[in-house]
Design a protein around this nucleic acid. Structure first.
Lengths: 223, 223
DNA sequence: TTGAAAATGACAAAACGCTGACAGACCCGA
DNA sequence: TCGGGTCTGTCAGCGTTTTGTCATTTTCAA
């Protein structure tokens, strides 16, 4: 389930991204209004989270344009505390729900799930690839129904790859997502991690694309 | 189960808080309307108890604002004796029930439970996981029909986990829900609590997901 | 064939959660 | 009001798991 997040505050963007990914969503995070609008216009999302105060293009404008073009994915609007006018405008512009800052991550996730469900999509917390099943609610990976005992880091790795299945994920992207502020120069931490995960899995889930990164794919699929 | 109480009368506020805590709720008590509104707007509550005559911001206004923003937790309104007009207004503004002062604490608690249940939050007062049964009405946990003697805090822990069964609950979320005043600091209070509960239970109900949190699951269940 | 990329095994430090002990707060009955 | 019991958070210690690094070997694509 792919979510578009448009939020200029670096800190909030990071926190929300982390929380959503932990909740099993795939997140495209964007700081700039113009860029965000473009993504929402060209990509397919289950929902969008939109901050109203944005550089580039104002959040309200972004929302209005989407709606004007017939993009009907649900949109959750983030507003500053007490900004009544904004909220009303947001609803008028076609927002499905709004959340005043500051908010709790837990609530954000709950509301997001709510609007997705309401919109007919289903916020399914389970990702299936071949015989492997990832349950993001239970944070558990099972192969042929048998649970696999993974360490936190290992779980995050598999979860990230599975949530991005069908796409080659560069090593650097992985290491960025596995530890927030952890840019290494020459570390093979990811390789070691992949190795450990593979040893625990009875099937060949993670494929290596030498020189590019790793990918999790449907058994038949190709890319 | 967390309740917001907005009531300016110091005495009543104290009494109600005591009664609710005795009934197993976690209470955030607030005297000022503005502050109460803010809390209801930003925090997550199972229900709110709202006095209509408030300093700062009138109770009705508080309620209307919550509803205008889509806060749909149930609200129990306290009114002065014989103030019929107020009650009608309260209902119109989105109150779920009202209680004229003076009232008996038992009745307050009963009505509060009623509106929480009615709100669909927890329609069923009984949650069953394997051989363990949680009766939220009696605030009792039984295993194979045998009641388990739990302290209030221990009960809340088990109740929260059981009400969220099948989902990994992070430690932080637990401590947020177990304490009305939440001090963000590193403490192993939750771990200690979990340990105490486990010692009292004959079965392995609470599972640890190292690095993530705790989870209560159906014995066989995987989804 | 060859050199870079990836996999592997070993290791030590760090992180994490569990436990027992303890002390202050609180409650209740005498 | 006093005294004992309960509840709850803190702390330090402990064992286990986790994780990054390094050295080395293997693999792969040009």
């Amino acid at each position: 389930m792919r979510i578009l997040l448009v939020e200029d505050d670096q800190r909030i963007r990071q926190d929300v991204t982390t929380a959503l990914e932990a909740a099993g969503f795939v997140v495209d995070a964007e700081a700039n209004g113009e860029e965000g609008w473009f993504l929402g216009d060209t990509e397919t999302y289950a929902a969008a989270i939109l901050d109203l105060g944005l550089p580039g293009m104002d959040g309200l404008t972004v929302l209005k344009r989407w709606r004007a073009e017939g993009r009907d994915f649900p949109v959750l609007v983030l507003t500053a505390r007490g900004a009544w006018a904004e909220r009303v405008e947001g609803i008028d512009a076609g927002a499905d729900d709004y959340l005043p800052k500051p908010f709790r991550m837990e609530e954000l996730v709950a509301r997001l799930r709510a609007i997705i469900r309401r919109s007919g999509g289903q916020a399914n917390p389970v990702v299936i690839v071949g015989e492997t099943e990832l349950d993001t609610r239970q944070m558990r990976l099972t192969v042929r129904g048998v649970p696999v005992n993974l360490s936190p880091q290992e779980y995050r790795l598999v979860a990230y790859l599975m949530l991005h299945k069908g796409r080659v994920v560069p090593q650097q992207e992985l290491s960025e997502h596995l530890q927030s502020v952890h840019f290494e120069r020459e570390s093979n931490a990811v390789e070691v991690l992949v190795g450990r995960v593979r040893r625990k899995l009875p099937t060949a889930l993670i494929e290596t694309r030498r020189g590019f990164g790793y990918i999790v794919n449907e058994p038949d699929g190709s890319s």
